[in-house]
Design a binder for these strands. Structure first.
Lengths: 208, 208
DNA sequence: CCGTGTTTTCATATTTTTCTGAAACGTTCA
DNA sequence: TGAACGTTTCAGAAAAATATGAAAACACGG
């Protein structure tokens, strides 16, 4: 499956290609398209600044596709445009620090996915806000039963909102200033086995 | 866009539908298909145990689709099969604790995505292992230049491997025993502003 | 304001993913 | 064993996501 590869150049090229393929498969995990991931992989793994034609050629994709993908990656802030004096072409290079890369991805997904989700959850929660207390019997029927079901519904939503707010807050820490939160995460790993529960700090209890 | 909804039942139903829609949009983020997410949302938001026909009807999907989705969700361990005495139908109910749900998802993605990725990265790293040191000039050409490029390549891969090993380790903590790691994460949030950097702590360890 | 080299756009084509529905397959109970 | 019920499978249909490529839009230098 992996022929020894005679000379260094060949080995390097093969390793790069394989990295690109593997990274491409992770596309789903990053929430980007396969090709985008491959373009990023190429830029990352070569460490060079490449132009659209380089990318087209190496990845065998169309100009339009390359252009779109590169732009999207720039929007994601994980590659950046580089211009060379005396050369009208635009070059692109990938962020080389893995942590920075990861931070950018988390930040972006936070903005694109978690924030909107939270907004929606809040709205949804409000839809049944007025109905939950032991209020008047809005209709004839079993208002008590209704109230119970709605109360449970609201509890579920509240828990979910709380959870995602926690997640968003945590991610923001991870992401913001200079990524110090991340280092923390790493250090956690090494000293976690016996975790330092700060104080009484129960965060809920969610009895099913 | 959101009519006040006269009676409680109606409000509840609308809130549920909207939750299902919103959750369905997050499907990509969880790495599952839209319908799967909707089915899960339905089970979660109603809090009831439903059978295939209930799901088909409420979501307006085919039997095959419902069956597939339910099974996949069971495989993901985020819903479970429930059998009722004296009823031949199979019912399904969703895990109601958000943290448990999240843990299940993380665990699953760890197994399905991160672990294979790490295996691949290691293999890829090995492809250029023999070429990196200031070794013999395998071929005629500029072996020094080759060596430099390969050394850089290896450095990039090593960093990436290290990163994902950290991530895998961290996630495992998050996920494993009884989710104690998660509680920790939450508490972090509340006391992070001034983070407790342990020591010089360069993350490393992880030797393959 | 042209000419040349480059990038962007976008309608159309292609590929991939997801869904459907009906047949095949189990199970249980008389 | 076989009728009644229920679940799973899967080939083909439908839908969604991606890619292509040629034309339009840009950007300069002259």
């Amino acid at each position: 499956m992996t022929p020894p590869a005679a000379n260094p150049d060949r080995a390097l090229r093969e390793a790069q290609d394989r990295f690109i393929a593997v990274w491409g498969q992770m596309a789903g995990a990053w929430g980007i398209s396969r090709t985008m991931a491959e373009v990023h992989a190429l830029l990352y793994v070569t460490g060079e600044a490449l132009n659209t034609d380089d990318v087209m050629e190496r990845l065998q994709i169309s100009r339009g596709n390359a252009s779109m993908s590169l732009r999207a990656l720039v929007d994601w802030h994980i590659i950046s445009k580089v211009t060379r004096r005396g050369d009208r072409k635009e070059y692109f290079e990938a962020e080389q620090d893995v942590w920075t890369l990861f931070r950018a991805i988390v930040r972006e997904r936070l903005n694109r996915e978690v924030d909107p989700l939270l907004a929606n959850l809040h709205e949804i929660r409000d839809m049944t806000a007025r109905h939950d207390g032991p209020r008047e019997k809005t209709q004839a029927g079993a208002s008590t039963e209704d109230a119970r079901r709605i109360a449970e519904h609201n509890k579920r939503l509240d828990e979910m909102v709380e959870f995602f707010e926690m997640l968003a807050g945590l991610s923001t820490q991870f992401v913001s200033p200079s990524g110090k939160g991340l280092r923390l995460a790493a250090s956690l790993l090494t000293k976690l086995p016996d975790l330092p529960r700060g104080k009484g700090e129960r965060l809920r209890e969610t009895g099913s």
